[in-house]
């Protein structure tokens, strides 16, 4: 998780902003085995993602283990303008979290 999440947000039209984000996370299901040792790799996945527009939550996601590694998330937010802030915060099942912010362009 060394890498910082990437967020891009741009105004499409009529105040609607498209947000695209990549969150770096291993998203282990807890079903996979380590090929070298044969031991099950413990589950480690993002449980909750909250997206905000100027600090107001606009989208909350509950994720399970079936979400891909390094999850990609795209959605739109209405009632926005260039210069507004879009923030994304996630929390995983081990209690770790990360957040990022982008300015709408």
């Amino acid at each position: 998780m060394a890498r910082k999440m990437k967020i891009r947000a741009f105004v499409k039209d009529g105040g609607v902003t498209v947000v695209k984000a990549i969150l770096y996370h291993p998203m282990e299901t807890g079903l996979r085995k380590d090929k070298a040792t044969g031991e099950v790799i413990p589950a480690h996945f993002i449980e909750e993602v909250v997206a905000t527009h100027n600090r107001n939550p606009v989208l909350t996601c509950d994720w399970g283990t079936a979400v891909s590694k390094n999850p990609f998330l795209s959605f739109d937010v209405s009632g926005t303008k260039a210069g507004d802030k879009i923030g994304i915060t996630w929390t995983d099942n081990l209690g770790k979290s990360d957040s990022g912010e982008a300015t709408i362009s």
């Binding site: 939550p57 606009v58 989208l59 909350t60 996601c61 979400v67 999850p71 998330l73």
Partner: peptide, 20 residues
């Protein structure tokens, strides 16, 4: 269940996500 997305009034027209 892979994922659940809760919208607000500001975000409800589409969602893209990658699943296994």
């Amino acid at each position: 269940l892979a994922a659940n997305f809760n919208f607000s009034k500001q975000s409800s027209s589409f969602i893209t996500c990658r699943v296994k």
